[in-house]
Design a protein around this nucleic acid. Structure first.
Lengths: 342, 342
DNA sequence: ACAGATGATGGCAGCGCTGCCAATCTCATT
DNA sequence: AATGAGATTGGCAGCGCTGCCATCATCTGT
């Protein structure tokens, strides 16, 4: 069954507010007030409008509503969100946290995915800005000059989430990736590991991962035990990439006693390699991840990793966006989960 | 630094099309044409407009554009997408497939997440419809009567994706979940398994999973080898849930020789339980999943599962939405991946 | 019973942009 | 030089809704 508009009724105009007004026998503004439950109107009017709406199957046109309402306080109930990826569970989680709060506040959110491409992020920011949102939530602190200029010029609330290692434009919500790296290194050192390697994905794309690694390396160096070796998989993080990269790393440096991964996806793959290759974990080789994926906790040996407050970050970002507070940086911290692999 | 609009300039009007027109010394419609690269205009005009735009930092107001353009062919370049979840990688994949095509076609997409709640889906459909999109992409064939009514009344293109087991409203793109269940059963039977159990998550929420199970059970029954036992975890699917559920299942029925999981998340958990408990896979117990997650292929033993064309489904949905073809059902099929676990 | 306070309501001018149409300009043809 | 087909351009009426203000109706206190 084709529900497309039939060619025989070329002018099937959609029901508009004024149709409802006529049907209900009231003025347009009255219908508008009733529909938005704002201002005052009698119970009787309300009922008549409700009836008319139902009878006509009226669907308000948000486009018109926002246009007309723009400039006023109640206007733009819209928020743009830019994230780099959807395949890494981190970002859907941030999204869930944010939209939960946003929905409650009556905001609509429009989402853009940049695929970790700064140029694309800039384009997306431009596109989202053209919706005239009340605010924008973006990921990370690093943006192209063009993107920064647009964000600044927009005059709206900007929230940069996840990363607190650097200066933000307005509001920053997240945790220190660098500190995560440092703490991860300290944990491994404290457990006595000394020949430590790193397995990561394409870090030039994922700046946060690069910051973690920087913190990690620095702490190792300060402890007089610099990173022994690293292996970078090309492309995005995945279990398969992690598995292969670890295989290469231990092939090259069989003497390593611990490996730090750029995240749990990679670490999972590393763990599988150990399982398949009979490498005892953590006896022969310790593994340390990042992100505390659900699945990492379900392994035969729970992965040692860092739990990040993803939902909370998303929620805090949304709250700050809606609120009218001052520019600030909110550090929500993280938690080291001592599993069985390191 | 707070970039909020300063209280000292209460009337900081945003730059509009007519500002650009004045600045460039041309008419509004000319600017509009240049900006949309539509109609004809001279190179000189184009340059002047481009300059003015840059000088003023003009950002087009899409709200106004869509409102004005509504009703015409080029109007509503907007598509609404409703998915039940973001945490299951399936849906981000569908989204990626769809937005890739949509972006290319110059469409913006607005996304809604229903959390597997039909009521919420209905509300989301209403909300998305109020953006006056050119079309809507929804998930699955089952919707509340209210949602169906709205979709029908909308008069726009509707694409229902993933599931082809039933009647659609307009365009349906996906594969037969029931057939997946049947083929999965046949595979296990062909490999000689006879005492087969099922481990699933809350199937009342996930209708597609229910259809797979139905097909699976039917095929087993027809083969004279009905499902021996089932274990349903409460809540959504996850590796942890799968692990615990399998533990309970084998605790109750240690004689089983194969287990079918509602999806790979659950199967992964089941595999981990076997690993942890020393249950030989597939010698002692075979495992069969669904969805071909990347991670399932990286296991020491690749999981036997079904690969579904997620990106392709999303892309096909978007293509059909943009195209002007007849109502139809497009079955993109699936592929059984014979891994090492069954 | 009358001024003043509320409560309800309708009218109408935009919000910023696009579609349509008429006006103007250009240029090769005859 | 006149002519017609295009190319280029500007004016302006909406798109559907909300904000603002004027208008009544109703109610309250003295």
């Amino acid at each position: 069954m084709n529900v497309q508009r039939s060619l025989h009724e070329p002018e099937r105009r959609l029901v508009t507010l004024s149709d409802v007004a006529r049907e209900a026998g009231v003025g347009e503004s009255t219908v508008s007030r009733v529909l938005r439950n704002q201002g005052s109107f009698s119970k009787r009017t309300q009922d008549r409008v409700a009836e008319a709406v139902a009878r006509l199957g009226y669907v308000p046109n948000r486009l018109a509503g926002m246009l007309a309402g723009s400039g006023s306080t109640a206007g733009a109930k819209l928020v743009g969100i830019v994230i780099p990826s959807l395949t890494n569970i981190v970002f859907p989680d941030l999204l869930r946290g944010a939209t939960a709060v946003l929905d409650r506040g009556g905001f609509q959110s429009v989402i853009g995915v940049s695929d970790y491409d700064p140029e694309r992020e800039e384009a997306l920011i431009g596109a989202l800005l053209s919706w005239r949102p009340a605010g924008l939530i973006v990921t990370g602190l690093e943006h192209t000059p063009g993107a920064l200029a647009r964000l600044r010029a927009s005059g709206i609330r900007i929230v940069e989430m996840i990363d607190t290692d650097g200066a933000g434009l307005d509001i920053v919500v997240g945790f220190s990736n660098r500190a995560v790296g440092c703490d991860s290194a300290r944990h491994l050192l404290a457990r006595g590991y000394r020949r430590i390697g790193f397995v990561g994905h394409d870090i030039t794309q994922d700046l946060r991962a690069a910051k973690r690694l920087a913190g990690f390396c620095e702490t190792l160096r300060e402890a007089g035990c610099p990173l022994a070796e690293r292996e970078i998989a090309s492309g995005p993080s995945s279990a398969a990439a992690g598995r292969e990269a670890l295989a290469r790393l231990v092939g090259r440096r069989p003497d390593l006693d611990a490996v730090y991964f750029s995240n749990d996806d990679m670490a999972l793959g590393g763990y599988f390699h150990c399982l398949a290759d009979g490498i005892a974990v953590p006896g022969r080789l310790a593994l340390f991840g990042f992100n505390a994926l659900d699945i990492a906790a379900a392994l035969p040996q729970p992965l040692t990793t860092i739990r990040t407050p993803r939902l909370e970050i998303g929620a805090a970002a949304a709250e700050r966006l809606a609120a009218d507070g001052p520019a600030e940086t909110v550090d929500l911290g993280y938690e080291l989960i001592a599993g069985a692999t390191a």
